[in-house]
């Protein structure tokens, strides 16, 4: 695995993969969106059920992105690998974006369904905290001047923040206030009809690939930027 972590190898490999990844993302999202609109309105939620197809995958990817960031941070901290640091750094703004997207689409759905944009329910609150974790992580990266020092400090923060992930995951069981419980990944099979399940899964796959496509673009940009900075430093007398 670490053979591919060499920045030069990474640039070659990611350059070759990127276009295919972007194409797959586009196809999956297009198909998912088509099925989202082709699905019949829900018997209770009506057309607002379509918000679920953009909301649930955003929330999944937001949490996956944090897990990814924490894992990359751990590798960066333990193996002192610059590429892992870059991966963690570049995953954070994307994760924050998906978190914000999940919060916004969720509250747009909540207004017609729950009658309110926001409640201080366990799931919603812990998700808001996830957004703050992301923002704190980004702020810490930006505030520390030395690149290696910033990477280590941010990595420690990311690992401390991992405690929030299980809280989000189990919040619907622990507090069971307003946000509905698990209806897809549960013992006894999903509770959702397959006309709704298919667009949901396609959108989830599309969102996940979108995250990795954007991540690779961001990582490549960061590597090129660092290279340009190093060249400029060497060129100046």
């Amino acid at each position: 695995m670490f053979g591919y972590a060499n920045p030069k190898r990474f640039m070659e490999l990611s350059g070759a993969v990127l276009l295919w990844l972007a194409a797959a993302t586009a196809v999956l999202l297009a198909l998912g969106l088509y099925l989202s609109f082709a699905a019949p309105p829900d018997y209770q939620q009506g057309d607002t059920v379509r918000i679920m197809f953009v909301h649930v995958p955003a929330a999944w990817v937001a949490m996956m992105a944090y897990g990814f960031m924490a894992l990359a941070s751990l590798i960066g901290l333990v193996n002192r690998h610059p590429l892992a640091d870059i991966a963690a750094k570049e995953a954070a703004p994307l994760g924050a974006l998906f978190t914000a997207l999940a919060l916004i689409t969720g509250s747009l759905w909540g207004r017609p369904m729950w009658g309110t944009y926001w409640v201080w329910d366990g799931r919603l609150t812990s998700f808001l905290l996830l957004l703050f974790l992301y923002l704190g992580y980004i702020a810490l990266w930006n505030a520390i001047e030395s690149e290696t020092r910033a990477a280590r400090a941010a990595a420690i923060l990311a690992l401390v923040g991992v405690v929030n992930l299980p809280i989000i995951e189990f919040s619907v069981q622990w507090w069971s206030t307003l946000h509905q419980g698990e209806s897809i990944v549960r013992a006894g099979g999903p509770l959702i009809a397959s006309v709704f399940l298919w667009p949901l899964f396609l959108m989830a796959a599309g969102y996940t690939l979108l995250f990795f496509t954007l991540l690779i673009v961001r990582m490549r940009t960061e590597i090129l930027e660092r290279r340009a900075r190093a060249l400029a430093l060497n060129a100046s007398p």
Partner: peptide
């Protein structure tokens, strides 16, 4: 400790600890 090397560390500190 994380914000030690930042000159105005006191400003960023509340953001870091709020979720925790």
């Amino acid at each position: 400790a994380l914000t030690l090397s930042i000159r105005r560390g006191g400003l960023i500190l509340p953001l870091l600890v709020l979720p925790l």
